[in-house]
Structures are given as C-alpha cells and as structure tokens.
Amino acid sequence: MMLAAFTHPVFDSQRNFRELLQAMARPASPRTLPVLAPAPVPATPAAMAILLTLCDTSTSVWLQQADEALSQHLRFHTGCGLVQTPVEADFALITDPTTMPPLDTFALGDPRYPDRSASLIVQVEAFHANTGPRFAGPGIRDVERVRIDGLPERFWRERVALASRLPLGIDLYFVAAQNILALPRTTRQLED
C-alpha cells in the first residue's frame, strides 16, 4: 500500500526548510526536524522529510539501496528523477553508510558553478554534541564538537581530501531519528 506524504505539504515543508537552512548555516550543531514523513524502508522518516521538502521534477535523486517501494514512493510524491550513478545526483540518499561509495564519486560542481554539486542525506545511528572531533568554519562561532556514530573511518579521510578542491565539494545532511546535522563543504575538521 502506498504511504502518505506530508499532511500539510505547504506548511510542513516550510517548517522543515527553515530548520534545514539553520542547520546548514550553523554546521555541526544538531537540530530537530519539526515534521517527519512516513517512509518505506530502508529510508527513515527524517530522510524522507528532507527529500519531500526539497525534491521535485527538476531534481535527480540517487538511492544507495534501490528499493522498488521506495522508488515508487519518491516518484509518486515528488516526481523526481531517479538516477543510476552517483555522479548524476543532485541528492543522494545513503541508507547504509558503511558501504557508501567514495565521496569523490559524487558531483563536486564546476569551478564556475560550484553549486552544481551533490547534497548527501546520510542516515546514521546517532550523533552526540559536545564530544568527539572539533569543527570550525563559516557558521561556527568558535568550535563545535560532535561525534557521529555509524560512519566508516574512510569517510573522514575522503572528506579531508575533498577540502583541497574548495569551493568545489559536496554538502552533507546527517539524519538520526528526528535529528539533523549539516556539514557544508566549508566546515573543517580540526586536528586534535
């Protein structure tokens, strides 16, 4: 049976967008998504809420685990195009971070148009503020500390390697339960 999307599409996506905007403007600082959406496995309600808020017929989405029910659900509610390779994606849904493709397989943008780059929605187990690695960059007053559970170790090495390509890069939204946390390309992980 087909699951529903937002109850109030206009207002639910507006409220979610404002949290996403603040999450992106204040990186590495967890926030709560106000409205979740029913989601077929392996997608979580928070990840689905982001996709419903931002995707439509002009966006292409890549699913790490291409489940038929999930694909149908997204096509029906957003009309988005589903693409076969990571490099084509505007948005990518990472449902199993341990086996995710390397970060540089996604679109990093063009030097003249660095905005033509992928945004990744990564479903993780949990994140813990005020502990773990330190982050700095635009949007962060001094430093933020956050530990993200469920990412492979190579993930951070791949992300550091991308920093030399700035302003090219990819932007990350992590979701765990009802919480979101953004890491734009400009956020640097500080060495301890």
Binding site: F17, D56, P114, D115, S119, P167, R185
Partner: peptide, 21 residues
C-alpha cells in the same frame, strides 16, 4: 507556487554552503 519555493530553497541552501558565491 511550491515548485518555485523549492527551487529557491535548494538554491538558498547551496548559497549558505558556499558563502558569498
């Protein structure tokens, strides 16, 4: 309309991710 708002919202998020661009 909602399609226009979503287009603006995606652009705004990229704008915040690439400050000044």
């Amino acid at each position: 309309d909602e399609n226009t708002k979503r287009m603006l919202r995606r652009a705004l998020l990229k704008a915040v991710a690439i400050p000044g661009y």
